[in-house]
Nucleic acid binder design. Structure first.
Lengths: 135, 135
DNA sequence: GTCCGTGCAAAGCGTTTGCAGCTTA
DNA sequence: TAAGCTGCAAACGCTTTGCACGGAC
């Protein structure tokens, strides 16, 4: 939260209740949220403020848009949460975090073979989790 | 096109002009398209038919939704196009195809360490292409 | 001829824009 | 105090739904 205040101030933006609420929603949810989810989790903030906050946070690199299942959802970036990816179980809809340094290294190598300077990437698997494949 | 007709028939769906048009739009575009793009490329088909066709094609595994830049777009699946991923240059907006067997093998290995049965995956890089990083 | 799919109309949402008033620094 | 933000109202555009006609098989 201090880090959020610091980031907002340093970029010349004000600290407001609406912004704190949106941040809290994403921070406590511990899973990616859709715009609709965020609006629902911030009942005291106007939808319009939520939309504007989402746009601001995206530009500041506080949150990022990722594909989950077949929907787009927002999640805190690695500034506030360690960089990772997801596996989505299409049966039980569970979302499993993937943390793999090997994967990150592989991506870096792949980019260099294409002489591409990577800024960011998106990776998500869909399939069956351990439990569901047994059934 | 024959393959499309065959797939539609085998699943009990009819071959119509609207469906051929949507398929052609995606097949000739050689790049992912948004719903709006597809509607614009199929002026003789009603938007509603385009939406319904997109839904049908998704269910039949003819097309899939992928994140490009910060937007969702549709692309023909590996049934009609070889499996690949993309690098999106945030400066010149160019989209570069990535074909890497090593990457696919890595993903398979990653899934198995998590005891996850992968059905499909999404991977996209954002960054700067060779030309743009020189400037 | 039968049923599926299309096209039109209209409703339904999610998202954006304009503006006055309040809050933050 | 001055500028930035919020909240409300309303516009906007994408997507969905209902229904009668037309086309595919």
């Amino acid at each position: 939260m201090d880090k959020l205040h610091q980031l907002l101030s340093s970029r010349g933006h004000r600290i407001t209740k609406a912004r704190e609420r949106v941040f809290n929603a994403l921070n406590t949810a511990e899973k990616p949220l859709s715009t609709t989810d965020i609006i629902a989790l911030c009942p005291t903030a106007d939808r319009v403020s939520v939309y504007r906050t989402i746009e601001l946070f995206s530009h500041l690199g506080i949150i990022k848009l990722i594909p989950v299942g077949w929907k787009q959802q927002y999640e805190l970036t690695s500034l506030f949460k360690s960089h990772h990816h997801h596996m989505f179980c299409t049966k039980c809809k569970k979302l499993i975090d993937i943390h793999s340094d090997d994967f990150e290294n592989f991506v870096a190598k792949l980019a260099s073979t294409y002489q591409f300077t990577p800024l960011d990437h998106t990776f998500e698997m869909r399939g069956l989790c351990q439990k569901c494949q047994k059934q």
